[in-house]
Amino acid sequence: MAAPREAPERRLFGRRFLTDPARLFQHNAWDNVEWSEEQEASARSKVQENSSQLLPQDKQEDYEVNAKKYWDEFYKIHENGFFKDRHWLFTEFPELAPDRNPSQNGDCVREFSNKDESNQEGLGSCENGHCSLETRAENQLNLTKTTPKICAEEPAAQEHGELNHSHGAYPGSSASYRILEVGCGAGNTVFPILQTNNDPGLFVYCCDFSTTAVDLVQNNAEFDSSRCFAFVHDLCSDQSPFPMPDGSLDIVILIFVLSAILPEKMQCVVNRLSRLLKPGGMVLLRDYGRYDLAQLRFKKGQCLSDNFYVRGDGTRVYFFTQGELDELFTTAGLQKIQNLVDRRLQVNRGKQMTMYRVWIQCKYRKPAAPQL
């Protein structure tokens, strides 16, 4: 099958723009909202304040060592409140539905209605029928399991996870179009893909650090083992093999996942995922941007390191700049297709409140193999 189509680069993520301040509370959200210099300065000041006191090293090590426990507990608590439609998914990432023309998505830009979203730290209300993408993302994070060492990148270590691939079939080996979602949670992305993309050659892999999350996926009535393979995986451990060989994937999806990884381990993770891609294959990422509302709401004593925090439930999150993500992916040998900031103003009309969200969306492609 041909390489995934490149979606046209768009400077704007949506089509609802606030041109008249008097109309602020007429809608639940406004797209591409520019920040004033004062707002930017205020955000920097809040981050300086909430990062002035770092957690003691012994507590930081506890969150690392017990990361799996925190995520298993999270999914056990929220197991009944997860699966919702993600209408924005195919608008922003039409590559996940290869037979769909991106222009057919029209104006349905991330307008989705969820009534009972789980909510961390009081963020992302679902009133008035609209839930923030970040609320959904809080339930989608994947945190990698800690080990005392930084995950190795030597070829021998990678080969450890590739044993037997060249000598026999593996799940999805007969497919012509393979997608992997890393940090699948309870299936908020996987199931919409399976429902929307009827390509008979499609096979979807999904993994999560949490055994509880993978169990939720496998026990979902929509799970189809003939089209999907769900597995527990530790991204940062070179002893945690992938079920597919290098160079076998068309798409790798990272939706609010990379931000949950210890920053010094991120490059190794991106390198591992890059090796899984076919020439021409693509990584699709959406994650937290610097000065997002979630970052500004942290209190003193929750900061682990620069722009890296721990939530009250023990899960952790990093807030990126475009440049940081670009360096991670280009260092892994991928080419930039898209790297955009999505600044979105969300409105709680019931409480007459405004919430400024900052997300980054990226698409990076593995270069095609050179012609001999």
Rank of each mutant, 00 (worst) to 15 (best):
L372C: 06
T212Q: 12
S132Q: 03
P367Q: 08
L273H: 12
Q195C: 03
K351C: 03
D85R: 14
M1I: 02
L141N: 04
Q195F: 00
S125E: 13
G323K: 14
L304G: 03
Q361V: 14
T212H: 09
A67Q: 11
N197G: 05
Y309D: 06
C362W: 06
G161E: 12
Y318G: 04
N348D: 15
V214K: 01
G333Q: 10
Y364L: 05
P21M: 06
C184N: 00
Y205C: 07
E38L: 06
R311S: 10
I255W: 09
L254N: 06
Y70C: 04
A43K: 05
R290D: 08
K59N: 00
T211E: 15
L55N: 07
F82R: 09
V269S: 12
L296F: 05
N66L: 12
C268A: 15
R5N: 10
G350I: 10
P241I: 13
F231L: 08
T354W: 01
F17G: 01
E162H: 08
F256C: 11
Q57L: 04
G106E: 14
H165W: 07
F209H: 01
D246T: 08
N80G: 03
R11W: 12
I337V: 11
Y288G: 01
T321P: 01
Q195K: 15
F203A: 05
N164P: 00
C207K: 07
R286A: 05
K299C: 10
P200H: 14
E121I: 01
E37R: 07
A213R: 03
N139R: 13
I77W: 09
Q60L: 03
S226Y: 08
N188M: 13
M244L: 15
Y291K: 00
E92C: 01
Y309A: 09
N142Y: 14
N139F: 09
T144E: 02
E117F: 01
P56D: 11
S226F: 10
C228I: 09
R23G: 01
S42G: 10
G183E: 03
S274Y: 05
R343C: 09
A369H: 07
K76L: 15
S174H: 12
P102E: 01
K68C: 04
K366E: 03
N119L: 13
C151D: 02
L55E: 02
D58I: 11
L304W: 08
P192T: 14
D250W: 02
Y63D: 06
I255E: 06
A213S: 14
S210A: 12
I193W: 02
Y170M: 05
G301R: 10
F25Q: 08
G333I: 09
D306S: 13
S132L: 05
G129W: 04
F242Y: 14
P243C: 04
D107L: 14
P171F: 07
W71L: 13
E117M: 07
L180M: 10
S166A: 15
T315P: 00
R311A: 13
L202W: 13
Q158R: 15
G168L: 11
H167I: 04
E9K: 11
E159H: 09
D58Q: 14
Q60A: 04
F223H: 15
Q120M: 12
Q104P: 00
P245V: 10
A41S: 12
W30E: 08
R227S: 05
S226P: 03
T196G: 00
N307H: 13
Q104T: 11
